[in-house]
Nucleic acid binder design. Structure first.
Lengths: 222, 222
DNA sequence: TCGCATAATACGTTATCCATAATTATGAGC
DNA sequence: GCTCATAATTATGGATAACGTATTATGCGA
């Protein structure tokens, strides 16, 4: 008895599970997805699975090659170079729109999250820092209250998760990341929109550069 | 005997046909899509149709309400206000990246298209102007050579097509649009990236404003 | 070893059926 | 006559089996 609260369709649930497996690199980029086998594995028929794959395909997580099946998307360094500036632009814009609409209470709430960020950094609690960081960005996007902007950002964020390096990139630059966040938060507090926007833009781009630097040392796959 | 070169899947073809029908407002926003009826109409089974609908849903052209069926997306003025600045940002960025990568030959080719634009404007040939305009934007995006940026722009462009006013917006401001294009082209010719980017940004936003103004007069639906 | 015919595999699609949820119609009770 | 609960209807979401066909793998002969 699943006793689901949310009666989401099966294909959506399967899509979500696949997403998680792809993000966790349980299914590595480039690998072929056997429809029948996967359907059997989940104990479902091919129909909802195929629908789920179409959803993932439009998110860019997998690629559907006609008559040749479904493959998990592989991100090249080139793709990262293409995506990061785009993300920087979009997250910058989200910050812009968020600050336009934010009440003082909203800003206070952001400050709260930022305080947690500071605390986690001091205590060197990586996981919590990571989480608070995500929450900060998420809250900003929520304040921007632009569903189109939001969906674009979220889609690209999903794609970035294909790169296993991504989540690691923060670790090496926790201190630096904190400084950048501090700048952004300061700009937000004085409601300097363009400064906050630029701060976010630079913050995201810095993430890309950190990632580029570590590409020589920890080579994950062959 | 279709003798297709590209053996696109049926669900893709159906998706494309539906797109065209939605763009042409043959199926108006808000209307419910009867799966069985549509499948019968195209002489296909429900399976590929449902897959097609999932693709359209992730493009934002239709909305899938769980257990309640599929509805063509309705754009509110609010949505337009959300999307246009985003498009402006993205097309601006595309112009930026295009100009970074463009050879002199590429710029010459853009100039050619622009010349056609000028000519069509002088002769007041609306349809051709419209087409050349599209080609100009398309060429820029192609030069940007960033598949992620491209796909985001194209998706949003599709969504904008839901608004029947959109294509009309050019008509009323053909002269103004030409002037803006002239500015952009000039910046491109001297390779002034930031000026070209800003020119494109303003150009798109001007489209939104023109559209807002005409909303009082030609009210299409109730 | 290479080229080509054959077999195997799996995708894309059809058709049919079913359970469930949403909608509408119906009818009892006040 | 109106409200509310129940029943009938309808459509979605999913399962299953089957089939044509394009792709890939295999094997045979030259």
């Amino acid at each position: 008895m699943p006793a689901r609260i949310a009666p989401t369709a099966l294909y959506q649930e399967v899509a979500e599970r696949l997403r998680q497996r792809i993000f966790a690199h349980e299914i590595t980029p480039g690998t072929w997805i056997d429809e029948q086998k996967l359907a059997d594995h989940y104990g479902i028929s091919r129909t909802p699975l195929r629908e789920a794959l179409k959803v993932l395909a439009s998110e860019g997580l997998v690629e559907l090659k006609p008559r040749r099946g479904c493959y998990v998307t592989e991100l090249s360094p080139r793709d990262l170079d293409d995506i990061f500036p785009l993300m920087a632009l979009l997250e910058g814009r989200a910050t812009h729109e968020a600050l336009q609409k934010a009440t003082d209470a909203d800003i206070a709430f952001l400050a709260e999250i930022h305080a947690r960020l500071e605390k986690c950094a001091t205590e060197n609690r990586m996981t919590d820092f990571f989480e608070a960081n995500q929450e900060f960005h998420k809250k900003l996007q929520e304040l921007a209250d632009n569903r189109w902007l939001l969906s674009v950002i979220q889609d690209l964020r999903k794609v970035l998760k294909l790169s296993r390096l991504h989540s690691l990139s923060l670790e090496g630059r926790l201190a630096q990341s904190l400084l950048e966040h501090r700048d952004i938060m300061a700009a937000i507090q004085v409601r300097d929109i363009s400064k906050a926007e630029k701060g976010m833009y630079d913050h995201i781009l810095a993430g890309r550069e950190a990632l580029a630097k570590m590409r020589t040392a920890p080579q994950p796959s062959n």
